[in-house]
Design a binder for these strands. Structure first.
Lengths: 346, 346
DNA sequence: GTGAAAGCGCTAACAA
DNA sequence: TTGTTAGCGCTTTCAC
């Protein structure tokens, strides 16, 4: 079953084979200095012959750099994070960095453990965190950090992602304009209060009521589990907004099981615009957050910081309302769709 | 923005602070040898005081081990791979290994590049490959490999995952028994022929016709794009089977746009049982492949091999038909659902 | 242009 | 139980 692992050739072997010193080989491999064509040819030949590859660990010991970045996401099964990772990956690959990806399973404890393990191996990290401000501050002293998806308001630690408050506000405005009166919000315990604040701001002075329900898990299960409390109370909502699409999808499926007709009885709105949001019946109205670009921005910024380059200010990603079948206008007299450039109808 | 990075304390610092030799500290840190309580106390104190963490790179240079494994998946956005990774992660974490995850974006070229980059950094790799047998053989000489999801039939390289041929056979048998007569299969260009072989075997001698269509992309887009050719020919199928759930979901959504009623006009069946398969209308009939356990098995086996432990034979994962609303019996006279333990109705 | 020598942070014989 | 020594594979002055 097992194939014997001959130990890999080293610089010494290449140096011997090509009759030059180790330092010469090193400089040629790294492009640090140029040599006579004859020497370079011999060295390249020997490298090819022996199948030499530099040992990145030995290199890291000296340079103090690993050309690797760590990524900690809360749940790689969530397409928002998968897309974020794809954005990070593409940037990292083109710039010659390796990505060490880990999944914290939405646990602050696991997240800490992973960070401690990752930090000595990488030059910087991108983290969707659940940790406290003080914990983040501690870690950020050890390595450059970039935060995503869950703004924590820690100073000196750059945060990336679309404006959650604005996302909430866009949804709120749409609901107001489309005649909804009783809105329930499925909130995520920790983390971003921002989406909620945005909703509140949009509803201020409009007479629209907002009821907030809590869910521990920002996934399909979380939506399924919250559906009962959310939908079967005495005052039934005419719209529910969920912290993210997964929760909205779970919630909508469960609502339909209860016999609700979406959107006739109830509008359902999510956040993220994951690929599956377009495939349900009805397809889900949601707010696109540009997860992939969020990852790319975070990675670019982090790598620039690591390499001591200038870190440009990134254009904030603008949340965009994607109108689909899970929501509809409630009052015939106000059929206008909301105005503004942040709306796309599909 | 940037916080100064004081260079990390080393063994030397700890040795100094606690008045012992470097090798003593090393042995205490690694638990290699025991020392007097007094010395151990001093060393642990110094470690805590200085916030010392071992430099894993320096360690790797000497030991030749990195306590890291590499993972290459084809598309982390595909829940099958996300679950696979979760299975791998949980095993790796409990055994003290770090996971270096990368996404090859379904490209053999990128996959090769990633493998070359990963190999010198890790003790072994888990790969969902698109590479040729010979390429895989080459890589497997450099590091222990475990293959998943896409059996390649390379000798000496263990492969994990449910039996694809059996999955195809189970679907085929169900379709036969439920009275379908014209089946179209949406096949994935490269890789697993196994699911197709299983279907063929099940249809042999039954008079059920099988038409095979090709799709390059094993994702939602692939299903959407193939729908036209698959559904709008002269002889319309009464069932379509897709290589995986993503393709089936894309295909079903598109079929519904064309006006097909699923399952009245057409049964749609996928493979994987991704979480979203249960949320569409109708929910998708599919075959559960136990992706998470597949990942766990591959990781356990690989780590055992790396550590020179015995590598137990893993129980093959049995594909299980999950009957949902996207398929139904076609002929009144044969209303029986298929028998056997591999069927779960929901 | 090329090489000798020193040393990154750590582990592993081998002494004592 | 503790320390000394050597050296992993590599980069990096600094000479020639």
């Amino acid at each position: 079953m097992s194939v014997p692992q001959h130990k890999a050739p080293t610089l010494r072997h290449v140096a011997h084979a090509s009759q030059v010193s180790e330092s010469t080989v090193s400089k040629i491999v790294n492009g640090t200095k140029r040599f006579s064509p004859e020497v370079e040819r011999r060295v390249h030949e020997a490298i090819a012959e022996l199948g030499y590859t530099a040992n990145p660990h030995a290199r890291s010991v000296i340079t103090g750099k690993s050309r690797a970045i760590g990524v900690v996401v809360a749940d790689i099964l969530n397409p928002h994070f998968a897309l974020l990772v794809k954005g990070i990956n593409s940037v990292a690959r083109t710039r010659g960095y390796t990505v060490l990806l880990t999944d914290s399973e939405e646990s602050a404890e696991i997240e800490s453990e992973l960070l401690r393990e990752l930090i000595p191996r990488v030059d910087g990290l991108i983290v969707a965190t659940r940790l406290s401000q003080s914990a983040i501050e501690q870690f950020s002293k050890l390595r450059p950090l970039a935060l995503t998806s869950r703004p924590s308001g820690v100073e000196h630690v750059p945060t990336f992602g679309a404006d959650g408050r604005l996302a909430g506000q866009i949804i709120g405005q749409y609901l107001v304009q489309s005649g909804h009166r009783r809105v329930s919000y499925l909130h995520l315990r920790q983390g971003s209060e921002e989406r909620l604040h945005g909703l509140r701001a949009a509803f201020a002075g409009t007479g629209v009521s907002l009821t907030v329900h809590l869910s521990g898990e920002p996934n399909i299960e979380g939506g399924v589990n919250a559906a009962g409390a959310l939908l079967l109370g005495t005052e039934r909502p005419d719209a529910v907004v969920a912290y993210n699409d997964l929760m909205a999808l779970g919630l909508m499926a469960e609502a339909q099981k209860y016999g609700f007709n979406v959107p006739a009885d109830l509008s359902v709105i999510g956040v993220d615009d994951i690929p599956y949001a377009a495939l349900t019946s009805p397809p889900l109205t949601t707010v696109q957050l540009h997860s992939r670009q969020e990852g790319a921005h975070a990675a670019e910024s982090l790598l620039n910081r690591i390499e001591g380059l200038e870190v440009p200010a990134y254009l904030p990603l603008h949340p965009q309302l994607i109108l689909r079948g899970s929501s509809r206008v409630r009052v015939p007299e106000s059929p206008g769709t909301p105005s503004g450039s942040s709306v796309t109808s599909q």
